[in-house]
Amino acid sequence: MQKLTNKEEEVMQILWKLEKAFVKDVLLEVKESKPHYNTVSTIIRNLEEKGYVDHIAYGNTYQYYPTVSKEDYRTGYMSNAIKNYFNNSYKGMVSFFAKEEKISAEELREILKMIEKEE
């Protein structure tokens, strides 16, 4: 799975939310610093070239939809992050978040309970 730029990820978040959208629909959902219509159109075409998006043609107008699910992207993204930043160690990742105080002891206990239930 090819890595996406921040803007591409932002557009994908919108497409996952809307499920199908025209460029103008995506533009309406952009929260910060509204890009030009052509900029959004170019981002979507890049996503299509990367295989993340496809379209349905209505004459000269295209309605776009994601071809990669949010879950599949998240799995690939997290796998790469753990590989590249934590030496393929989930323990290292959890330890990092604990040290940075991004996860509490109570949350870790909840995670342990979830793991124990699955075993």
Rank of each mutant, 00 (worst) to 15 (best):
M1S: 09
M1P: 08
M1T: 04
Q2G: 05
L4K: 02
T5Y: 06
N6R: 14
E8I: 03
E9T: 09
E9Q: 14
V11P: 07
Q13E: 15
I14S: 01
L15H: 01
L15I: 02
K17H: 02
L18H: 01
K20T: 01
F22G: 07
F22I: 05
K24F: 13
K24E: 12
K24C: 09
D25A: 08
V26Y: 00
L28W: 04
E29I: 06
E32V: 15
S33Q: 14
S33Y: 14
K34N: 13
H36A: 13
H36P: 04
Y37L: 10
N38F: 12
T39S: 11
V40C: 02
V40Y: 00
V40D: 03
S41E: 09
S41L: 11
T42A: 14
R45G: 02
K50C: 10
Y52C: 06
A57S: 15
G59V: 06
G59Y: 08
N60K: 13
T61H: 12
Y62V: 06
Y65W: 03
T67L: 04
V68I: 10
S69M: 12
S69W: 10
K70G: 01
E71R: 14
D72N: 15
G76Y: 02
G76S: 09
G76F: 02
Y77P: 03
M78G: 02
S79P: 05
N80A: 13
A81W: 00
I82H: 04
I82M: 04
Y85R: 09
N87S: 06
N88K: 02
N88I: 00
K91E: 14
F96Q: 03
F97T: 07
A98N: 10
A98F: 11
K99A: 11
E101D: 11
I103F: 08
I103D: 06
S104W: 05
E106S: 07
R109L: 14
E110M: 13
E110Y: 12
I111K: 05
L112W: 12
L112P: 00
L112D: 13
M114Q: 11
E116T: 13
E116F: 06
E119D: 15
E119A: 13
